[in-house]
Simulated assay, not measured.
Amino acid sequence: MVEVTNVLLSGVVGSTAYGLATPESDVDRLAVFAAPTVLFHGLRPPTGKQATRVSTDPDVTRHEAGKFAGLCLGVNPTVTELLWLEEYETCTELGERLVGIRESFLSARRVRDAYYGYAVSQFRRLENREDGSFSADTRKRTAKHARHLARLVHQGLDLYRTGRLTVRLADPQWYRDFGERVAAGEVDVAKTLLAEGEAGFDAARTPLPERPEEEVVEAWLIDVRAAFLSAARA
């Protein structure tokens, strides 16, 4: 198991970053770390599941630099947002450079597929109920899914139209109210929002390229590997 060392970039993400946190919400953190380069020469390199470490109390997800880069090239919304925060808890020189190339990870098709696709998956969670109603036990979770469905549609469309991601929501109360409406049984408003989002993507013009600038990302990753080439084995 690779030890988490050499944290390059970290910050608070999730509901706190969006402005949707409640007193009961956990504070979620996301970090990028660099494993010693020598570990990639062995039988079990820190890739795949081995390249992510998740801890609780506090809630922190840490991705090794190579895996983080791959997830961002796929425009994974929960990972991509780290590069667009207003402030960071840890930001080294390599972390600052990573933020500086954030636009290189973006591509039009992946932004649409990722954000709209995640929103659709949230809707399926709302729709897959046996009796067509919400129990008291599931209402809070349902409201959360609905809030994030709306957030994904709006953030994704804005990113698609402008080429920039705004993490902090302009009107968090709107999303809270939307979530409560859906949790109260108005599932059709979520379905309507999805349809409007799809139409918005279809009609929008985007400054995003067809493909990400992988050579820029690769150059950064090679520099990360060079920086930790002589690091001691974990």
Rank of each mutant, 00 (worst) to 15 (best):
G74Y: 04
V99H: 09
D188P: 00
L82R: 01
L9T: 05
S25G: 11
D202L: 13
T92P: 07
R164F: 06
T206R: 04
S121C: 11
A65T: 03
G74N: 13
G70E: 08
P45A: 10
P212N: 10
L193E: 06
A150F: 03
R181F: 07
K144P: 01
G163L: 08
E196H: 11
R141F: 13
G11S: 08
A146R: 03
E218K: 06
V4Y: 07
A17L: 10
G66T: 13
S104D: 03
A231C: 14
R125I: 05
Q122K: 14
W220E: 08
E180S: 12
T142W: 02
S25I: 14
L152Y: 08
Y175E: 05
W84E: 10
A183N: 09
L208W: 01
G185Q: 13
Y115C: 09
V120I: 14
L94C: 07
T56H: 09
Q50A: 15
A183F: 03
L73G: 01
R147W: 00
A170G: 13
T206V: 05
P209L: 00
E127G: 12
V189R: 02
G185N: 12
E196M: 06
L126T: 01
E86I: 06
D131E: 13
H154F: 05
T206P: 05
Y160M: 07
Q122I: 10
G19A: 12
P58I: 12
T162R: 07
V167Q: 00
E198R: 15
A184Y: 10
G48R: 12
S104R: 00
H145Y: 13
G156V: 05
Y116E: 01
R161G: 02
V7K: 06
H148R: 03
I222Y: 10
D57A: 15
Y175T: 09
G14V: 06
R141G: 14
Q155I: 13
L98H: 08
P77S: 04
Y160N: 02
V4T: 13
V167C: 07
L73K: 08
E89M: 13
S230F: 09
V2S: 12
C72N: 05
G48T: 14
D171T: 14
E218V: 03
T16F: 11
V120D: 09
L71D: 05
Y18F: 15
G66P: 00
S107G: 06
R161P: 00
L94D: 07
E87P: 08
Y116H: 10
V79L: 12
V182L: 07
R129V: 12
R164W: 08
V216Q: 02
S15F: 06
E210I: 00
V60K: 09
A31P: 01
Y118I: 08
L229N: 02
S121G: 14
K144H: 13
E198L: 14
A65M: 09
R161K: 11
G197A: 04
V60G: 06
T142K: 04
R53E: 08
V187Y: 02
T37C: 15
A183H: 03
V75C: 02
A183L: 06
A34P: 04
E24A: 15
E196G: 11
V27T: 15
S55N: 10
P23I: 06
V13P: 01
E89P: 03
Q155G: 01
G117Y: 05
P207M: 12
R44A: 15
